[in-house]
Write a protein that binds this DNA or RNA. Sequence first.
DNA 1: ATTAGTAGTATACAAAAGGTTAGTGGTAAC
DNA 2: GTTACCACTAACCTTTTGTATACTACTAAT
Lengths: 118, 118
Amino acid sequence: MTKDAKISEECNAVLSPIGDALYVIGGKWKLRVIVALKEGCKRFNEIQRTIDGISARVLSAELKELELNGFVKRIVHHTQTPVVVEYQITPYADTLSEVLQALANWGTMHRDKLRKER
Amino acid sequence: MTKDAKISEECNAVLSPIGDALYVIGGKWKLRVIVALKEGCKRFNEIQRTIDGISARVLSAELKELELNGFVKRIVHHTQTPVVVEYQITPYADTLSEVLQALANWGTMHRDKLRKER
DNA sequence: ATTAGTAGTATACAAAAGGTTAGTGGTAAC
DNA sequence: GTTACCACTAACCTTTTGTATACTACTAAT
């Protein structure tokens, strides 16, 4: 096996799961929406107010994708009019806690580093 | 303090560091490039061959950004012509190991789950 | 009666990200 | 002598992502 092929093989053992992960939770908003739901947001407008800068159109699309991937459950309460819609995180979303923790830790560390450098 | 304001405050304590992290290492390619370099890739074309689907134009841009953020060092060897360029990961890139590990673990788990569901 | 809130969708547009193709100027292998 | 490798870059195009505005249809507060 050539050197290149060996590197490539080892690489892909790490690259492809990371690719799989980024495929579902990558992008600007997905993790943020999950965090917002985790922290107790349930209603559409509540989520939008919490996540700075997200538009209704994008939030709507993100919620749909997250539902498709099993992170979120959409519950419609027909008990009264107008309809009340509630979004719940599923237990599967909890499997992301390590990823979220690692990202939050690193983000905090990185910001501190930038502050000291200036 | 209202309920919404409280949720919002707690949320942002987690959301803003995650936002900071995604700002520098978010996007389709950054983490992949870092992994490739970590695993021993050093040369431009070698990296491009390893990361499936990346174009020279995009790789070039990603490497520049990574250099700017202190993850990568670009070293030009003028010893011979044509010039040989080497990319090295910096120790700062190692601070990402927890994030990478968490993502790779989750990606592996997620793929297994999808395989079983089908 | 007006205003705001609910949970979105439709439309149109702008910006960002990424892909494709071609090309540089040299060297080294077939 | 043709081809391929090296490390890119420029120009151009497409796709993705996001923004802004308006709208629905109903309720509750001012």
